Amino acid sequence: MTTTEPFWTDPLPAAAPPPSMALHQLPTGTYRTRAALAVTGGSFRDTREFAATAVLITHPQGDLLIDAGFGAHVDEHIRMLARVERAPYEVGTTAAQQLDDAGYERSRLTGVLVTHVHWDHVSGLDSLRVPIWINRDEMRYAERDAHGAVFRAVSQGLELREYELDGPPYLGFPSSFDVHGDGSVVVAHAGGHTDGSVIVFVALPSGDRYAFIGDLTWQRDGITRGAQRPWLLRRMADIDAETVRLGLRRAIALSKLMRIVPSHDLGAYDSIPRLAAGGIDA
């Protein structure tokens, strides 16, 4: 995949994150696959641990989780998958339990903003039981696609907080939604992996910026080498591989300006602190 054409060359858009805003990672488990099945050019001798990690954004206007990781009933959720999609996995502590262990006041959590509805991003909704932030295109995908089965199960009885991606283009992506109106959390439509898959851009008061790119690529090789998923996996995992390729090129163009976090790359979360007991100010 060539990356010679720049997609974003302007200064980053202004953002005014409040001083108390912060990020925390909540790792909930991993599953294993061969690098050859994760990224073009990967080796069958190389085993990759895929992260299932939620990210907590604290903000005075209301906190959000990006995705939910593994839930309390992840074993049941994996049994709902086609056999070819199952992989060896290790379960950690659910995001819900990590919040409780940290003494987090759950009333602060306004919901889970899903990058997309595949099982490994939504399983943890079974124990969080908070509103789901989702756009219309992704909701339609969840209703009709076989890969939405786990989402349909865990979302039963939960409030669906539908947002519109009716804002302007953002960092090369076609449309956006500014969650708080201050540029600190901006959701941009990516598409291709699923109909309504999104990227969540976060600007911190430190000046650091993050792009949580969901499954545009599963591993950082996709950013550092421009490597797509292998052909067969593109056929299985993406609804429009060309749109994913375009989104990946847009993300690569941003990689010198911010930290790019593919959802399933363990090392991509290294700069984000974990929750600790009493670690979040009221």
Rank of each mutant, 00 (worst) to 15 (best):
Met1Asn: 10
Phe7Ile: 07
Trp8Asp: 02
Trp8Thr: 02
Ala14Asn: 12
Ala15Leu: 02
Ala15Pro: 00
Ala15Gly: 03
Pro17Ser: 07
Pro18Thr: 04
Pro27Ser: 10
Thr30Arg: 09
Arg32His: 15
Arg32Ala: 14
Thr33Trp: 11
Val39Arg: 05
Gly42Pro: 01
Ser43Ala: 13
Phe44Ser: 15
Phe44Gly: 12
Asp46Tyr: 10
Asp46Cys: 12
Phe50Leu: 14
Ala52Tyr: 05
Thr58Asp: 01
Pro60Glu: 14
Gln61Leu: 11
Asp63Ala: 03
Leu65Pro: 01
Asp67Gly: 05
Gly69Asn: 00
Gly69Ser: 05
Gly71Val: 01
Ala72Asn: 09
Arg79Gln: 15
Ala82Thr: 13
Ala82His: 11
Ala82Ser: 15
Pro88Cys: 06
Tyr89Val: 07
Gln97Tyr: 00
Gly103Met: 08
Ser107Arg: 13
Leu109Lys: 02
Thr110Glu: 15
Gly111Gln: 03
Leu113Phe: 07
Trp119Cys: 04
Trp119Glu: 07
Gly124Asn: 04
Gly124Lys: 00
Ser127Cys: 14
Arg129Cys: 06
Val130Asn: 08
Pro131Glu: 08
Arg140Val: 11
Gly157Lys: 11
Arg161Phe: 04
Pro168Gln: 04
Leu171Met: 11
Gly172Ile: 09
Pro174Asn: 06
Ser175Leu: 09
Phe177Ser: 01
Phe177Ile: 03
Ser184Met: 05
Val185Gly: 01
Val198Asp: 09
Ile199Met: 12
Ala203Arg: 07
Arg209Lys: 09
Ala211Gly: 09
Ile213Asp: 03
Asp215Thr: 08
Thr217Glu: 12
Thr217Gly: 10
Gln228Arg: 15
Arg229Pro: 01
Arg229Asp: 07
Arg229Trp: 10
Pro230Ile: 03
Pro230Ala: 08
Arg234Asp: 08
Leu246Thr: 13
Ser255Met: 08
Leu257Arg: 07
Met258Ile: 06
Val261Phe: 04
Ser271Glu: 14
Gly278His: 06
Asp281Gln: 14
Ala282Gln: 12
